[in-house]
Computed example of a mutant assay.
Amino acid sequence: MWFLEGDEVDHSYLQSHELELATVSDVVDWKPDAVFVPGNVVPSFIPGLKVAVFHGFNAGKINRRGRLDHFEIRGCFDLYCTQGPDTTVPFLELAKKYRYFDVVETGWPTLDPLFTVEDSNPYIDEADDRPTILMCSTFSRNLSCAPILFEKVKELSKRGNWRWLIQFHPKMPATVVEQYKALQNENLTFVETDNVLPLLKAADVMLCDTSSVLLMFLILKKPVVTFRNQDPAPYLLNVTRVEEVEAMLVNALQGRKEHCREIAKYASQIHPYSDGRSSARVIDAVSKVLDSEEKNRKNKPLNIVRNIKVRKKLNYWKFS
């Protein structure tokens, strides 16, 4: 069963065979054995093992308390299903400290379709052998490359040396979106989609900024050219000036061995799984915890204030 909460959630994305519980009362009455959460919190009054499956990779974001947001322990979860050694090791240390949750490295279920064979990909043109550049960008005004690189992308797309696919974060300002939509021609396509994975599989190189989507591209062992990235690591090809973009894209398409090794090394740390079975590993991990007689040694915190806030938000005041 699905339970979707919040004004920004689009229920139409559920497929016809997927079932949805409409209210919190329905969820509580259904008595789930496990609750899979792609967010940061889950109400304690919902039954079942609380499982964190994450909504993205560790992008290095610091929260208002000055701590890495990805590793913030909020007292909500019984099990963390981590994506790779980069996240597993810190969470194992946190598990030793808090002693009320388990940690199992499973890989990230979101990426399973990235490694499965698909019947067709709408973004691959078998009749066009030109390299394909995928441009993605975050919506943050201070970090987004989209407004700054508009004229350069316009120029490069008109030349026709490469195929361009453009996809932005859903919160990208409408003015920027309309600008890029107006650029569409036989060499450039603007894509609005809730599923970026086929785009990642179709492209040879990504042009990006600091958007976390670039990490998914690196897992495919493909090069990413970043514009003014906040953490220009060796596995990225970072530039700081608009006039450097074209040359770096050419560099990326050449696929130099040293850079390929850096990408492979980084990918092995954040997500070493390429078998498309991360979802299965999550289910196995949950089953083992549920079947285990050796439960966590401590109870989770009561989280009184947080749970009152959640009850108010969900308008749920039943107490069992």
Rank of each mutant, 00 (worst) to 15 (best):
118 E>M: 04
120 S>G: 00
193 T>G: 05
146 A>I: 02
130 R>C: 10
252 A>M: 10
245 V>E: 08
139 F>R: 10
135 M>E: 00
238 N>Y: 04
129 D>V: 08
256 R>W: 13
158 K>L: 12
238 N>W: 02
228 R>V: 10
192 E>R: 12
113 P>R: 05
173 P>F: 12
135 M>G: 01
229 N>W: 12
124 I>K: 14
175 T>F: 08
239 V>Q: 01
174 A>W: 09
238 N>G: 04
209 D>N: 07
134 L>S: 11
151 E>H: 08
116 T>V: 12
114 L>W: 02
209 D>Q: 08
219 I>H: 06
219 I>W: 04
163 R>A: 13
236 L>F: 14
136 C>T: 15
182 A>I: 01
235 Y>C: 07
217 F>V: 04
213 V>K: 00
124 I>R: 14
176 V>K: 03
240 T>L: 00
184 Q>W: 04
214 L>R: 07
190 F>R: 02
221 K>Q: 15
170 P>T: 09
110 T>A: 10
252 A>Y: 08
244 E>F: 03
217 F>P: 00
222 K>G: 08
114 L>M: 13
215 L>A: 03
199 L>G: 10
134 L>A: 12
233 A>G: 06
209 D>A: 06
148 I>K: 14
121 N>V: 06
153 V>I: 13
206 M>C: 02
249 L>Q: 06
